[in-house]
Amino acid sequence: MRIGIVVDSACDLPHEFLEKNNIVVLPITVRIGEAVLADHRDEEATLGFLHAHVAERGHEAETTPFTVNQIRDLFLGKLVIDYDHVFCLTITRTRSPIHDNAMQASFAILNDYKPARQAAGYNSPFALRVIDTQNLFAAQGVTAVEAVRLREAGTGLQQMRERLELLAANTHGFMIPRDLYYLRARARTKGDRSVGLLSAALGSALDIKPVLRGYRGATEPVAKIKGFENAVEQMFRHAGNQVMKGLMAPTLCMSYGGELSELRALPGYQRLRDICENNKVEVFESVMSLTGMVNVGKGAVVVGFAAEPHEFKPG
C-alpha cells in the first residue's frame, strides 16, 4: 500500500523534512502589489519576500489557495498514480477555504481516477481522506509528522485515520504576535473586526502582548502579558510544562516569522529544547510560511503540540 501525505503551504515544517518524506505541498499564492510568490515552503524565497515586501505592505497582501480544479488536476495528473491512498491534511477550515476546496475536489477525483490509474498499469482502487487539522501554522505540523511516523510503522489505514483525527482534535497552537498594529491592519484588510484600534493602541502603548491559542478550529486570546520577550518565555514555559506532563505524540513544532537565529535567541527557547530532549520529544522548527507571516506579521512565534485539554497558565 503506497500512502501519500499532502499538506498546504501554511503547514510550518522544515523544507528538508517535507522533501525527505515526499510530502506534497498545496501552494498558496501571495500577491503584494505587483510582487507575486507561490509559497512552496522554500525558506530562502520566503525570507527574501519577507525582507522585500512583507514588513512594509504585508497587511495588503492577497492570498490565493489552490482551487478545487487545481487540486483535482494535481491528483488526477500525479497522485492517483503515485499512491493508492492519500491523507490530505489542511489548515483549519474556519480560517481558509482550502479544506472545503479539497473536499469538493475529492468527489471529482474519486469519480475520475480509474482511467489515469489504468493507463499507468494500476487496476486497484484509489482512496483519499481529507482531514481538517483544526489548527494553523506550526500546530498543523503535528499531524503531518505523526502521519509520517504511522506510515513508516506500517499502521493500517483505519487506525491511521482515527489516530490523525484524534490528534487534530487535541492539538494546541499558541502564538505571540509582535506587532498588534500590523495584526489590526491585516484584520481590516480581510474584513475581520476582531482586533480593534483601541485594543491595538493600548497593547502597543503598554507593551501588552496577547497569547493566542488555536484549538479545535477556534482562535482566541487566552492571556495578556507585558513585553514580547516575556510573553514568549511564558509561552515556552507553558509548552515545556506540558511536555513534562506527557504529550499525546512525541512532537513539538515551532515556527518564527523571520530568521531562525532570532527564534533561538529568545528567552526560554533553550530550556524548552532541553526539556524536549530529556523527554524524548522531537522538535521541528521552521521559518513561518509566507501565508502565515502576511496574516500575523513579521516576528510572530508559534508553538504547537498535542495534549489533553488544559488551560494556559502564565508562570
Score class of each variant (00 low, 15 high):
residue 119 A to V: 07
residue 102 A to D: 07
residue 133 T to D: 04
residue 34 E to Y: 00
residue 55 A to E: 13
residue 180 L to F: 14
residue 61 A to C: 01
residue 99 H to Y: 14
residue 251 T to P: 06
residue 206 L to T: 15
residue 84 D to A: 03
residue 70 Q to G: 11
residue 39 D to S: 11
residue 239 A to W: 14
residue 88 C to W: 04
residue 91 I to A: 05
residue 161 R to F: 08
residue 215 Y to G: 08
residue 241 N to V: 05
residue 134 Q to Y: 09
residue 86 V to I: 08
residue 41 R to Q: 08
residue 147 A to Q: 10
residue 95 R to G: 11
residue 14 P to L: 04
residue 241 N to D: 11
residue 67 T to W: 00
residue 211 V to S: 06
residue 234 Q to D: 14
residue 183 L to I: 05
residue 294 V to D: 00
residue 259 E to F: 05
residue 82 D to T: 02
residue 94 T to P: 03
residue 250 P to D: 14
residue 38 A to V: 07
residue 240 G to S: 13
residue 35 A to D: 04
residue 116 A to E: 12
residue 267 P to L: 07
residue 248 M to S: 13
residue 9 S to M: 07
residue 153 A to I: 04
residue 5 I to L: 12
residue 204 S to A: 14
residue 6 V to M: 05
residue 32 I to E: 01
residue 267 P to A: 08
residue 302 V to D: 06
residue 159 Q to I: 07
residue 30 V to N: 03
residue 224 K to T: 05
residue 48 G to Y: 04
residue 140 Q to G: 03
residue 235 M to L: 15
residue 149 R to Y: 10
residue 219 T to H: 14
residue 27 P to F: 06
residue 195 V to P: 10
residue 28 I to S: 05
residue 126 F to S: 00
residue 53 H to T: 04
residue 259 E to H: 13
residue 167 L to A: 02
residue 62 E to C: 06
residue 305 F to D: 03
residue 162 E to G: 12
residue 182 Y to G: 00
residue 205 A to F: 15
residue 218 A to F: 08
residue 195 V to F: 05
residue 204 S to W: 01
residue 208 I to F: 13
residue 278 N to P: 07
residue 309 P to E: 07
residue 251 T to S: 11
residue 64 T to W: 02
residue 30 V to S: 06
residue 35 A to H: 12
residue 84 D to C: 03
residue 20 K to P: 04
residue 23 I to S: 00
residue 158 Q to D: 11
residue 125 P to L: 06
residue 263 L to Q: 04
residue 162 E to A: 14
residue 3 I to M: 08
residue 284 F to V: 07
residue 244 M to A: 15
residue 236 F to S: 02
residue 39 D to F: 01
residue 297 G to Y: 02
residue 261 S to Y: 06
residue 294 V to M: 01
residue 266 L to S: 12
residue 184 R to D: 01
residue 251 T to Y: 12
residue 199 S to F: 07
residue 284 F to E: 04
residue 10 A to T: 14
residue 151 R to S: 02
residue 200 A to K: 10
residue 173 G to F: 02
residue 268 G to F: 10
residue 269 Y to S: 13
residue 122 Y to D: 08
residue 300 A to D: 01
residue 90 T to R: 08
residue 66 F to E: 10
residue 140 Q to C: 12
residue 69 N to K: 13
residue 159 Q to S: 12
residue 216 R to I: 08
residue 133 T to I: 03
residue 249 A to F: 12
residue 255 S to H: 10
residue 65 P to H: 00
residue 264 R to S: 12
residue 271 R to E: 13
residue 301 V to N: 05
residue 273 R to D: 12
residue 226 K to L: 13
residue 105 A to P: 11
residue 19 E to I: 09
residue 257 G to F: 01
residue 184 R to I: 04
residue 294 V to R: 01
residue 2 R to L: 08
residue 121 G to K: 05
